[in-house]
Write a protein that binds this DNA or RNA. Structure first.
Lengths: 332, 332
DNA sequence: CTGTTAGCGCGTTCAC
DNA sequence: GTGAACGCGCTAACAG
């Protein structure tokens, strides 16, 4: 491997000067500078990033810890983050936690061991992993979910308001018996969206009926099972609000399997878009989240945190947007 | 920061012994070993990965260079790769090239600078980036696409055969005027799938009509435009074979916009699945690729290449699978 | 089996 | 504006 010493010898200067030329941090005589550049080209020299990292005790890596990259919500978010990373000179390390606190903790630990420059994380229900990172005072942005007791920059969407709007839209369409499939009790998004559902019912003068609420796991199979159980009620719901994309898909699949159609048999509003929601039959009404922006914002916060570590933690809340399509057409 | 020297002092042994205990590579007296572990726990010592990397002149990072993580094909592939990475002790660095040779080359360069342990890449049409990596003799696996003149482990699917089957299925359904929307001329998958299309026509005794073929860019808008142009033909096609998922979606959107329905107005077979193809209306017939397996296989090859660098490069070809759904129902 | 020693390649003092 | 020298934290080689 050719090192900075080889370049120095070849160009007749000291290694320190080569370093200065390459990092461009200080003034160097243009003539020497030119010699160095020539030597670099001739030797095909490439700086050793690892050595540089050791010396500076920090890397150019950002970790993004999410539950599953295959969920389009995270896919788009990660893309937003990576675009910022690229312009800022960082690389993104992808960490799928699968909602498993152990995996999450392992990644958090690796983040510290490998001296990564920052982390964006969508925390699982236990705070262990996030806490480790927060304690280490590494630049940290929580995304999508709040965690009680952890002070860090945070990017959220207006979950409660978004859910409110989605459910209100159903009520405005004449639906009264509206079911809700939400996520685990410990996850802030699940609770906030459930809470928006309840507010909308209240505002619409509809009594809250806990038999119409299901807690599932934010996954497709969970949505399917929850839908199935709702359909077994003596008096099944005439509309459904599902609090994430995968559970909505599961519910739709359940309906299709049973030969039921939206909105005629049951109207549907989902939280979070799915790709090509227009092509689904009938097209799916959703409370859309600005997923790409979520990632982008997290990237900006991470960058700001790095440049000015002292700043008090801030929380950015982005707006959701109701996308009215066919599954929520007014009751006939 | 607490270092290996602090641990050594605290436990009354040499730094080397601490290193041996922590890496577990050589036998150490159990008693000393215990002392070391105790000291590690007391001090909350965490090894410095960067220093370790410098010393070993290699990192625990794998790069995956793809055109866009938002394409479900790559999403799933990356997930497959990451699962292998995790069990083998690597992290995955995500690199979106957007089919831009300059971005790809920049990432390739960063891979070398940062001493990453290996790369999985879906090459753009120009070979520059891949060539750089191949010349550097870094463990390298090409996925999805072949590149002429570059010797490296490769994972592909049986593009030609898959396309053949998809088109044959249309012919068997009674369709004769079958159009094809394929990708750029320089991309191997585009050409291989086009070639399978032609073979199927030939086998079905149908004359090849180049007016029915469009070269687009593998993206949604390209598929849309190509479909539009096909519909403007004096004698429009009665069936369509599109060679990737995004262009298929684009074509479907074009049809929907024009009020045309599959398969009654035009039958459709797409190459590569999309998530929830069942929910699309009508459900979409596809030549499905084992995307997760593609990534997993790439990971295995990368690992093998690392453990036995001498082995001659191998090419693994995985099978596609025809998923017959509604858009290709036989002609009435 | 253990300790001593010497770098891995670089950036950054500190003198000049 | 430049060079000499040191050390970031670790592990591999060697000697014992």
């Amino acid at each position: 491997m050719t090192t900075i010493y080889d370049v120095a010898r070849r160009s007749g200067v000291s290694p320190a000067t080569v370093s200065r030329v390459l990092s461009g941090r200080r003034n160097v005589d243009p003539e020497l500078s030119e010699k160095v550049r020539a030597a670099v080209a001739e030797l095909g020299y490439r700086p050793n990033g690892v050595a540089r990292n050791l010396r500076k005790s920090s890397t150019n890596l950002w970790a993004v810890v999410i539950s599953d990259i295959e969920n389009p919500f995270f896919t788009s978010l990660v893309r937003g983050l990576e675009d910022v990373a690229q312009t800022e000179g960082y690389h993104v390390v992808l960490c799928n936690s699968d909602e498993d606190p152990a995996k999450e903790a392992a990644y958090a630990s690796a983040v510290l061991t490998d001296q990564m420059a920052g982390v964006v994380i969508s925390p699982t229900s236990t705070a262990e992993g996030v806490q480790l990172l927060a304690d280490a005072k590494i630049p940290l942005v929580m995304i999508d979910r709040r965690v009680e007791g952890v002070e860090a920059d945070t990017v959220l969407v207006d979950n409660e308001h978004g859910a409110f709007e989605g459910v209100k839209h159903l009520i405005d369409g004449g639906y009264q018996r509206i079911a809700c499939i939400t996520g685990p009790r410990k996850v802030s998004t699940a609770m906030d969206r459930l809470s928006g559902y309840r507010s909308a019912l209240r505002a619409g003068g509809i009594r809250y009926d806990k038999d119409l609420v299901r807690h599932a796991d934010f996954r497709e199979a969970g949505g399917y099972a929850a839908m199935e159980s709702l359909l077994e009620l003596a008096d099944p719901p005439e509309a459904l609000f599902a609090t994430n994309n995968l559970m909505t898909v599961g519910a739709l699949e359940c309906l299709a399997r049973k030969g039921l159609r939206a909105p005629d048999d049951i109207a549907v509003v989902g939280f979070d878009d799915i790709p090509w929601a227009d092509l689904v039959v009938p097209s799916l009404t959703t409370v859309a989240q600005p997923t790409y922006e979520l990632g982008r914002t997290a990237g900006m916060l991470l960058k700001d945190r790095t440049t000015s570590p002292g700043r008090p933690p801030s929380t950015v809340t982005l707006r959701t947007e109701l996308h009215i399509r066919a599954t929520s057409a007014p009751k006939k």
